[in-house]
Amino acid sequence: MAVELMLEKWPGKVGELTLGATEQEGGSRSGVIKLGGQTTLPFLFPEGKIPYKPRLAFEIWDIAPLDWPQDLSQVYAHVFADPYLWAEKCVREYKAEILCIKLQGAHPDFGNKTPEQEAELIRGLLKRVDLPLVILGCGDRDKDNLVLPACSEAAKGERCLVGSAAQDNYKTLTAAVLADGHNIIAESPIDINIAKQLNILISDSGLPLERIVINPTIGALGYGLEYAYSIMERARLSALSGDKMVALPFICLVGQEAWRAKEARVGSQETSIIWEALTATALIQAGADLLVMRHPQAVEKVSNYIDNLWG
């Protein structure tokens, strides 16, 4: 007897977001990448539409990351000094689709670069590579409020993804992103309510919901992954049930978390890579749309995984 699948019909749909702008659209990217748009849970193709694959972005820094473990830093050590070369290496050697530049050097404790210096870097980067760009601040709230608007302006029209906005500090970044035609990352501390509140606040400030990406904050495998997983799953279930305020794509900073894990720092190279890859694949099952990763072999594994499931 044939087994009949029980199919769920969801009323909601995850918002669709476009990353990057081509020349016709006023930017200079070679192509655009779309995220979101699902009408069902990950990989449940018979149930609904899943128009776009989960995407992987390579994380690069504006300064040499001194605390990256040996297994990771040896891959990029020769390009650490030059973010442009680092970016080009990702594009040429690893076929990166998206680059994520973290402006760690702007942090008062790590170089304290000026907003002008960082804006200049972004301008240069946009000239050297033609991929869609994710721009991450250094994490120092006051400094980011100076640096990110400058970078946003420098990348005006390129439809980047800029972050992060937080519940108590979203106004400056939202205004900049709104003015310069970018998308925003809304970061919340593993809390579905705060995630939603922040989306409401940002959209109340005039930025349309389809330009917001949720950073739910994650933990690596063995370091609270399941908390992040359940929050993302709950948010996605609400989204599919019709709650527009959480019906937005997720970005997960996988590399940053996975390479902090003790197993990734002191284990064999293989363990470290698998740690990053497993963290990423689990989050893809929870609904991640964009994953920021570090090790090229981990990216390769996850990429294969996506392709296999995509069938």
Binding site: D191, N193, I194, Q197, I200, M245
Partner: peptide
Amino acid sequence: MDEYIAALFFPHTDL
């Protein structure tokens, strides 16, 4: 706790 965080908003996270 979930209810509380959801209520930490004007008027409420669940409009």
